[in-house]
Design a binder for these strands. Structure first.
Length: 888
RNA sequence: GGGCGUUUAGCUCAGCUGGGAGAGCGCUACCCUUACAAGGUAGAUGUCGGGGGUUCGAUCCCCUCAACGCCCACCA
């Protein structure tokens, strides 16, 4: 009896994706709406940089956040997910500069600040739009009306307001300080933006003459001989017997022959190098400190582009690499170089430019974060904000508990220009939120703004505030600041815990006194299947949109969710996406199966007395999975939630419940058909609801067949909650045994190479009366599932058939009489093997029961459990013995 | 150097406050069975990194060793 089915055999993701995303937008599903929880749930999207295309890390970000927000939305929270993009000062400026150079052979100075900024804005418009397209293809359910760009008017106001506030408190100050100078960007960068890499270099030992005593030659060790031009002292440890008499005398720098003092400073390590240290306050962090302690002058020998300036005439204009070679040559010529040996040491590189950063002294703006970090630490310690998984708070603390002042100025053009103004007429310097027209002191109009811009993370740190309108009162009202701040959960990667999470905490608390979010879920970093970072240079990157077009957005999302728990790496193999694509298709085909019976199905569940045993079972299992999904999603275990529903759909629903339904649906009992069709429809409605947060497209598509009211989209239906009235451990237990018996029969069939078409006679022996009844009630199903023609169920006092293919579970013996057809030896061996295994297991539990210490110390329930197990193994051994006897 | 983390089936990983070792993929055999070959049925696979300790009992707790990874600090 073939039933007409006009649904396609495989699910077509593309059509569903475009169709349903448009429908969701059209119905304003993503806008906050008050729900039964009477509470809000807010998530703030980490704004992607406008530098280019989204990568797998963004896809993971998007998937986990979307799953969470869809889940909460269905649970009846008033949900808001705020999207946006980041101007990403340094990287964006660098990318655009490079592009302009490539196309027009012009640098930013050739264009001028205004024109250059115009170009970046044009670029931003293009890529910003592309990012939104990509996100929508992945199904993100954010409220696009809230979309914010970090250089928009409100964030700009926020930055100015915050800056002026802290400036006036004296927390922001300007200072000549040694900073990490990136010669490519020609800007200072913060400590956090420096990456240390092992570099092969050399240790040079150089002779410095002592003016007062030409017989003494000091040997100093350095890895950077080219910086001797900036030396302003030689330092030794005042406790160093070898050199302490030299303190106060004068050393002469080779090549330039400048005289510098020999000083004593505790910082010098007697053991390290030669014990003599050349002090270069202008180009070394430690030396800068020594210089400050000892009042040494600072000499700068570098230009902004990293080449040497006139203070180092012999190497003027050279880059560091050539300069070093040249200095080395001169040193050899002067016979000053005593020794040169290979040396591997860490050298700071710019995170964005990947060039060696040069410590250089310059005037920069700093933010004193001492008090703010203290507050941010306390908020986590006292539980106002919690990390998931908890371990990440260590990273957070490590950063905030030893706060260093934050260098917030950057010598770039793309960003928030520092709202500090200077007067050319007098010496006034002040910060202001509104652009002033005259000097604050002398009222002269010849004033100018500081040309530097702020570190990108300065505006990112204010993101939870500015996206909700702060500090503009009207905007705050419109966007519901009071309602949605603090946010609920922040989802991001561990690589930006201190760049971003810590800064948002500091700044949010500074402004409002409240932590900007209650939870921070730190997800894994996506790597390739071998665990390597995805990068352009390795060429191992996977483009999320390629995956979406190849396997569908749902498959990709399920893969990412299934891989996202409390782990720190997610090694992504495209084969796994294919696997989950198959799962999505499985779901589709399960639906195809029930589709023809939908018109028989009723809207409400039948009364309980009409439920078949199998119905009770599937509802109990469904209830179990609902419970576990709720619990998992509440604590961001997307992996557990995914595998729970995966196992349910595959194993329980498809493999058993659908198979068990065929007998009824293909049968003659119309009443039973209606009940079963109703059950299937009900289950499917619950299944797609449970799955919707992870795979929104296919579930919405299937929902459209299950819900007659077209205005009721699945995206805004109720999530499935645990229902105690559906619990039924006894039926679940019986069903498991029934499954064991069925599998046992199939197992025997397979062990004697029986064809699926061969019908068999089965004789079961069990002392479990309830089970016997259950199997008897399900006898027609057993026939279908294992192609059983006839059979009997008896208790174990009855005589067993002779020489049958057989098998024993702990509760049931299965015999299939096949005398003459089967290989007796093979069967006996199989049973003996099982016996040995069971024997071993039995010995283990028996050992425990014979152990006095176990019996007196183990808790009651554990003892009972072990006793029960012992009984089970005993029963099984007895059964196996019976079977062996039947072969005699 | 300081800190964090990892080591469980061929691969990727899960195992909650100690109490019979799990999943997915892969693999093997047989099947185009009327939802699905992007499928079905059955099956195999582990000294839970090494050593020691605590405990009646350790994949789980403590110590130690080893390997690997990450973060922070450091251009003598």
């Amino acid at each position: 009896m073939e039933i007409e089915n006009n649904l396609p055999k495989t699910f077509d993701p593309k059509a569903a994706e475009d169709k349903w995303y448009a429908k969701w937008l059209e119905n304003k599903c993503f806008k906050p709406k008050a729900g039964k929880q009477k509470r809000t749930f807010t998530v703030l999207m980490p704004p992607p940089n406008v530098t280019g295309k989204l990568h797998m890390g963004h896809a993971l970000d998007a998937t986990t956040q979307d799953a969470l927000i869809r889940y909460k939305r269905m649970k009846g929270f008033e949900t808001l997910w705020i999207p946006g993009t980041d101007h990403a000062g340094i990287s964006t400026q660098a990318v655009v500069e490079k592009l302009i150079w490539k196309e027009e052979k012009k640098n930013r100075h050739d264009l001028g600040r205004e024109e250059f900024l115009k170009r970046i804005w044009a670029w931003k418009e293009q890529y910003g739009t592309e990012i939104v397209n990509q996100q929508q293809k992945m199904g993100v359910s954010c409220d696009w009306d809230y979309s914010t760009f970090t250089l928009d008017e409100i964030p700009n106001k926020a930055v100015k307001k915050f800056f002026v506030m802290l400036f006036n408190e004296g927390l922001i100050y300007q200072s000549d300080y040694i900073v990490n100078w990136d010669p490519v960007l020609q800007s200072a960068i913060s400590d956090a933006e420096v990456e240390h890499k092992e570099v092969r270099g050399h240790f040079y030992h150089l002779k410095y003459k002592v003016k007062e005593d030409p017989t003494i030659e000091l040997v100093i060790a350095t890895t950077r001989p080219e910086t001797i031009f900036a030396d302003t002292a030689v330092a030794v440890n005042p406790n160093d017997e070898r050199f302490k008499d030299l303190i106060g005398k004068t050393a002469i720098i080779p090549i330039c022959n400048r005289e510098i003092p020999i000083i004593g400073d505790e910082h010098v390590d007697i053991e390290k190098g030669t014990g003599c240290l050349k002090v270069t306050p202008g180009h070394d962090f430690n030396d800068f400190e020594i210089g400050k302690r000892n009042g040494l002058p600072i000499i700068n020998i570098l230009n902004k582009d990293g080449t040497f300036n006139t203070n180092a005439p012999e190497i003027e204009g050279l880059n560091p690499k050539d300069a070093r070679a040249e200095v080395e040559r001169i040193l050899i010529e002067l016979d000053v170089l005593v020794e040169k040996k290979d040396h591997v040491h860490p050298v700071g590189h710019g995170q964005r430019s990947d060039e060696i950063v040069e410590p250089m002294v310059s005037k920069q703006w700093f933010l004193n974060t001492t008090a703010m970090s203290q507050v941010a630490v306390e908020a986590v310690e006292n539980g106002e904000m919690t990390f998931f998984p908890k371990g990440w708070e260590n990273t957070y603390f490590a950063w905030l508990k030893s706060p260093k002042d934050w260098c917030i100025s950057r010598q770039l053009w793309w960003g928030h220009q520092i709202p500090v103004y200077y007067c050319r007429h007098c010496d006034a310097k002040w910060a202001a939120e509104e652009t002033p027209s005259e000097c604050i002191d002398c009222r002269d109009t010849d004033i100018f703004q500081d040309p530097d811009v702020l570190d990108t993370w300065f505006s990112s740190g204010l993101w939870p505030l500015s996206t909700l309108g702060w500090p503009d009162e009207k905007a705050m009202e419109e966007k519901g600041f009071d309602k949605f701040y603090p946010n609920s959960t922040l989802i991001t990667g561990f690589d930006i815990i201190f760049f971003w999470v810590a800064r948002m905490m500091m700044m949010g608390m500074k402004v409002t006194g409240k932590a900007p979010f209650k939870h921070t879920y730190i997800h894994a970093i996506v790597r390739d299947k071998q665990g390597r970072k995805m990068s352009k240079s390795l060429g191992n990157g996977i483009d999320p949109l390629d995956m979406v077009s190849k396997y569908g957005a749902d498959a990709m999302r399920f893969t990412l969710a299934a891989g996202s728990g409390y782990n720190r790496d997610l090694n992504l193999d495209p084969e796994r996406i294919e696997g989950y694509r198959n799962f999505v298709n499985k779901l589709w085909n399960a639906f195809r199966f029930i589709y023809p019976y939908l018109d028989k199905a009723q809207d409400e569940l039948p009364i309980k007395s009409e439920w078949h045993l199998h119905d009770k079972w599937i509802l109990a299992e469904l209830n179990t999975v609902a419970k576990s999904m709720n619990e998992s999603l509440d604590v961001y275990r997307f992996d557990d939630a995914s595998s729970a529903i995966y196992a349910f759909v595959y194993d329980k629903f498809c493999s058993w419940y659908i198979e068990l339904s065929k007998n009824i649906l293909y049968g003659e009992d119309e009443k039973a058909k209606i009940v079963r069709a109703t059950m299937l429809k009900y289950c499917f409605r619950k299944i797609v609801a449970l799955l919707h947060p992870i795979v929104p497209f296919i579930t919405e598509e299937i929902w459209s067949y299950l819900e007659s009211d077209e205005t009721k989209l699945l995206a805004v239906q109720d999530y499935v909650e645990f229902d105690p009235s559906l619990e039924n451990a006894e039926v679940q237990d019986m069903m498991n045994r029934f499954i064991e018996v069925t599998t046992g029969v199939r197992n025997i069939r397979s062990s004697v190479n029986m064809k699926p078409k061969d019908e068999i006679d089965v004789k079961l022996f069990t002392d479990d009366k309830k089970l016997a009844k259950f199997i008897y009630d399900s006898r027609h199903f057993l026939k279908d599932l294992a192609n059983v023609k006839s059979g009997t169920i008896r208790n174990k006092t009855q005589e067993r058939p002779k020489k049958s293919a057989s098998l024993a579970t702990v509760h049931t013996e299965i015999f299939i009489p096949l005398e003459g057809i089967i290989d007796i030896n093979e069967q006996v061996n199989r049973i003996k093997k099982d016996m040995e295994k069971t024997q071993n297991e039995y010995k283990k539990v028996e050992g425990k029961l014979n152990n006095q210490n176990f019996m007196s110390n183990a808790p009651e329930e554990v003892r009972a459990e072990v006793q029960e197990k012992a009984k089970m193994f005993q029963d099984k051994l007895q059964s196996l013995n019976q079977i062996l006897e039947s072969f005699l």
